[in-house]
Design a protein around this nucleic acid. Structure first.
Lengths: 237, 237
DNA sequence: CGCCGTCCGTGCGCTACCACACATATGGTA
DNA sequence: TACCATATGTGTGGTAGCGCACGGACGGCG
């Protein structure tokens, strides 16, 4: 991880950008840019965090790692939100790992500064809590989706959630990694992705997936995507 | 739902009981007792809530209802916590339904009073936020468990989570209802419960399940139960 | 006592997904 | 250009859970 000058404007993070001018300007001096590369671990399960991260162009996955080595994604955060809710919720740690799913930038704030700001109880606190509620919905809907829906629908959900957090139509992501996120076999992803490609919804070669027909994907996805999207829009929009 | 005098002491709710004397006494006059019967809906998906509920002996399930009528549980709350995080998290509503899974009592507080108390930022606020983080872990672990574990293990998890929230070894619950909670077929529950009964871990007849060998259940459950339990103990203990 | 609604057990065929094995294709690098 | 690591495609066989159908058993109630 590098702290670099050429990283992005904090206002590229929508949660920060939605703050009233006064709050934004007070917080700004406490934000420092960070560049994340693909696969980097932002925080480890159970580890105390020094910073809260507000992605600008990066996408971060929240993964649970099973004792036997398999894994599953429980949530995803990008420019709409933040990584590190445990810092203001009071627990300090979470029993999962945060991994960079799409390389890019973020800005970060020291834990102690965050906690002081949170304790002020103003607009910033309200944004952080509303975001956490949105995350709660995302995680619970992931639970439902894992129980009731087929891999192909879940892949659509995952592609759309990622696409929402990118400015590009191209995702740099192998089927192997997607399988780890979805908690399924790589072959299962191959099969589902093949069907989506046949239908002309996506195309892919060697770790580069292109979204060709977003409305088509939205027609193929299960209701879970809409529930989560609507709740994010309602709470943060 | 009845508001009744013979319901339980607010201190039977462990979250309230853990408050400093001063806070507890300030809050006490704003709590009124409520009795819940099995199957009662505490709040409906998307509905604005008037009260936050602190169960004393009741157990409440948080369920997502699919468009096609099937359902799955995303979380469970009992005397260790509360129902209605959306009231202080800022969203006001949640896209799920809260249903009484085990009849019993609770105390409730008006939303406006709760919000005033929360804004004070003291011990009560800290307890509410830490509980919400614990709920976050429960929901995310449910997502993982739904993806990766067999019905039998999930049934063990569900039985243990319920048992933790009861003072009795007997659960009043049909296999049909458990199937709705776990998001599986009733026959699947019959098969799994039959195996647990053969092993002498539980016994059941017509909607009454008795926990016979709790250590045995703990040996049969997946790691998800332990992760959630430990996190509740850490955050609320 | 006899009836009936509720709850639980079981069988059958089916599908989705798994585990493992291996073939093929691609793109970077020597 | 040849090579090689990585990414994707495919086949075989096994299993968990599904949908459906029906049988049996318990227990409350007239």
């Amino acid at each position: 991880m590098h702290t670099t000058k050429q990283a992005h404007d904090p206002a590229d993070n929508k949660l920060l950008a939605s703050l009233p001018q006064e709050d934004y300007e007070r917080i700004l001096p406490h934000l420092s840019p960070v560049a994340f590369s693909l696969g980097e671990v932002v925080y480890e399960s159970g580890a105390r965090m020094e910073h809260i991260y507000f992605p600008t162009t990066a996408i971060i996955s929240l993964l649970y790692m099973m004792e036997n080595g398999s894994s599953a994604e429980m949530g995803i955060a990008g420019k709409e939100g933040l990584v590190g809710v445990a810092l203001f919720m009071g627990g300090g740690t979470m029993p999962n790992r945060a991994v960079v799913q799409s390389a890019g930038g973020a800005v970060r704030m020291r834990a102690s500064v965050l906690q002081d700001e949170f304790a002020q109880g103003g607009a910033f606190q309200r944004r952080l809590l509303r975001y956490t509620q949105a995350l709660l919905t995302q995680m619970s809907q992931t639970a439902v989706c894992n129980r009731l829906h087929a891999i192909e629908q879940q892949l659509c959900r995952w592609l759309l959630l990622s696409h929402d957090r990118l400015d590009s139509d191209e995702l740099v992501m192998t089927q192997e990694l997607i399988a780890n996120m979805l908690g399924v076999r790589r072959e299962g992803v191959t099969a589902a992705a093949g069907r989506l490609q046949e239908q002309g919804l996506i195309s892919y070669v060697r770790g580069r997936i292109r979204i060709l027909d977003r409305p088509g994907l939205e027609a193929a996805v299960c209701e879970c995507y809409g529930v989560v999207k609507d709740e994010y829009d309602r709470l943060l929009g």
